[in-house]
Amino acid sequence: MTAAQELQVKEKQEVASPAEQTKPGIIFTPDVDIFETDRNITLLADMPGVAADDIEIDLRENILTVAGDVKPFEGADESDILVEFEIGKYHRQFTLSDKIDQGKIEANFEDGVLRLTLPKEEKAAPRKIAVKSA
């Protein structure tokens, strides 16, 4: 393994065209990693500032929605000296090409990172059909 690279500042990406909001506030696209194995699709999303209870995960008709609400964590009587990042909600949608076993979805949230394991629906085990010759 090579030496760890130095992290660069990455500006938070604002969602370009979400469904129109009724509440004011900025919405960001969380950075994600998505990878899959034969059995699972795993999604990792960075959502700092979100409490585990405020995460919404929704899967319907192959559209996976991950959203997180951030409660303000700065005290009301604090005044800004330096502002380099903004605080806002997170929202992102994905289309999944595989059928997911909805009952077995696992979500784990730790240190501001959501880990979502989506098990693929088990297909019938491949059968070999032997051809008999008469």
Binding site: L7, V9, M47, P48, G75, E78, D80, L82
Partner: peptide
């Protein structure tokens, strides 16, 4: 420079916050 920080103050303290998920 990573990480981006927000600095605020109240009467008694300075608060430095950074997003460091994971």
């Amino acid at each position: 420079v990573f990480p981006s920080i927000n600095m605020t103050e109240d009467v008694d303290n300075y608060f430095i916050r950074a997003e460091l998920p994971g």
